[in-house]
Simulated assay, not measured.
Amino acid sequence: MFGTVSEEMEVKVSATEAWKLYGTLQLAKLIEEELTDVIHKLEIHGDGGVGTILNITFPPGTPFFSSYKEKFTKMDHEKRVKEAEVIEGGYLDLGFTLYRGRFEVIEKSENTCITKTTIEYEIKEEAAANASIVSIQPMVKIMEVAANYFIKNKK
């Protein structure tokens, strides 16, 4: 079974400026600082490019799983697209064969862009009931943290 969910948000900053956050490890560091209720610990292995691995640990008592590792599998600075796939633990332990998150920064005007997040997943038929735990909300929270960052750091 294959599924996809996505959400978009308009941000009052240029696509180039937004990508300076989304296209770097600065986004991961901002998430770790701002979303302490969602992420307990974030270990980064790599320079932020393809192959970088994030080891994400959730607070005690988080439903479904306590941690997983994801790997950056796509980093396209021209198209402003970044993708990461879960490579160990988490969703994979619940019958998912693919769990991919994507961020895109889409230019709208000189000082406005659209940030878009998408989750794509595949799950084994015998675990299909677990598809109900897929939620775009954590990714939307990340976009909200980024939008607030742009407001606070507007030049």
Rank of each mutant, 00 (worst) to 15 (best):
E85N: 06
Y121M: 03
K116A: 08
G101M: 06
I119T: 04
I31C: 03
G95M: 00
G49A: 09
I106Q: 04
L30P: 00
E125N: 13
D93H: 04
A127Q: 02
L27T: 09
G90Q: 03
P59Y: 10
G46Y: 15
H77P: 13
G90L: 04
T36C: 05
N55F: 09
G90A: 01
I39N: 09
I123C: 00
S132T: 12
I142R: 03
V86T: 01
P63E: 07
P138C: 02
I136A: 00
K108P: 05
G61H: 13
H45M: 14
F64I: 09
L25E: 05
K108E: 12
T115S: 12
Y91L: 03
T36Q: 10
H77A: 14
Y99D: 03
E110D: 15
I53T: 14
T57K: 14
F96T: 01
Y91I: 02
T97K: 03
I114N: 04
R102H: 06
E88I: 07
R80K: 15
G95P: 00
Y91E: 00
F103P: 01
I133H: 07
N111I: 08
R102A: 08
D93A: 07
F72R: 05
F64Y: 14
F150H: 15
G48A: 11
V81C: 07
V50C: 09
E110L: 13
V145Y: 01
Y121L: 05
L92K: 00
N111G: 11
T73E: 04
Y99P: 03
T73R: 02
V145T: 04
E122L: 12
Q137G: 09
C113W: 04
N111D: 15
V134I: 09
K69D: 13
F72V: 15
P59W: 09
Y149H: 13
L54Q: 15
G23M: 06
D37H: 13
R80C: 09
A129V: 09
A147K: 13
G101A: 07
Y91H: 04
G89W: 00
S66P: 03
N148D: 14
V134E: 06
Q26E: 15
V81D: 08
E120C: 03
I44S: 08
K74R: 15
K69W: 07
G90C: 00
E120F: 04
I56D: 09
I123M: 02
V38L: 15
F64W: 15
F96D: 02
G48W: 06
N130K: 02
P59K: 14
E85K: 06
A84G: 07
G48Y: 06
K124Q: 07
Y149D: 06
G46R: 14
K20Q: 15
E43C: 12
K79G: 08
T36S: 09
E125S: 09
F64D: 11
L42V: 12
Y22R: 12
Q137W: 10
T24Y: 08
